[in-house]
Design a protein around this nucleic acid. Structure first.
Lengths: 144, 144
DNA sequence: CCCATGACTGCAAATATATTGCATTCGCAA
DNA sequence: TTGCGAATGCAATATATTTGCAGTCATGGG
């Protein structure tokens, strides 16, 4: 009856509460979260921060979670969802983060170029956009 | 006679040695470097680490340098060079980093989609590829 | 349902990374 | 050469992440 817990059991890992909460929180969040944000969202009794880090690193090795780098001091994490591919859009003015599901993400041409030029076999990519959100763009636009 | 120093003077900033070294090192490096790597490459007498961090943050605000996030513990930095646009390719096997100059980086369509869907005005993007380099791919390929 | 066992957790300490206050020194222009 | 504001060194502090270890929990077997 608990999706996160089942996921762990299926993978042969004990389904502990902290671990389940981390995965649930990431699955429910529309944007990637930092370890600190994840911790803050776990209802009491809250696990230790080290448990959150250990959970994240386990889930990454199980392929349940991936990291997202938005050029901040700490990395963020998101749940891996089958069949979705998202890019992040970050506002330089207010820090707002949004996810964007591209109509069609075709970087395969670039990936082929890379294979040809460097012999690298690309399995994955990470694409983030930076700029001004509607609100901040408006603010800056009208004088300031 | 010193390109880095001139750059700072032109921008009305004192051209100090540490600062110049940081910019020179980044300009000469084919791959983005972490603050620690930058510091290690400055010849004696080496400035304090805080000077390197302060230099980087100044240069970012001056637009001379930008950060590159390769999902590591610390960010990396690279010199901004007029007219070049590069992507990074990182090997998950050995950590090797290479830069790749795309024949044509056309993400403007995606950027337009973003403007339409989210109202975000994109000014910039960051694109990194992950996979296996020629050597690591070969290793894994022939049995391991 | 209870037990054995390995996996996981909390806690505290260690490390790594980044930032800041302050007194001193440096770079630059007059 | 001198004066001033900017930059630096140093030490302290903040933040992020990792690790050792002893106690606890989750799961499968009986």
């Amino acid at each position: 009856m608990n999706a996160a817990a089942d996921t762990f059991r299926r993978l042969g890992r004990p389904a502990t509460r902290g671990r389940g909460e981390v995965l649930r929180i990431l699955s429910e969040s529309p944007i990637p979260l930092s370890p600190r944000e994840i911790l803050e969202r776990i209802p009491e009794p809250r696990p230790d921060a080290s448990t959150v880090y250990r959970s994240l690193s386990l889930m990454i090795s199980l392929g349940l979670v991936r990291s997202v780098a938005l050029h901040e001091r700490s990395r963020r994490y998101e749940a891996v969802t089958e069949g979705t591919h998202r890019h992040r859009v970050v506002c330089r003015g207010c820090g707002r983060i949004e996810s964007f599901q591209p109509k069609k993400c075709d970087l395969s041409r670039i990936e082929n170029d890379i294979r040809g030029a460097l012999g690298f076999d690309v399995s994955d990519h990470s694409l983030e956009f930076f700029g001004a959100c509607a609100e901040c763009g408006r603010k800056k636009g009208r004088g300031r």
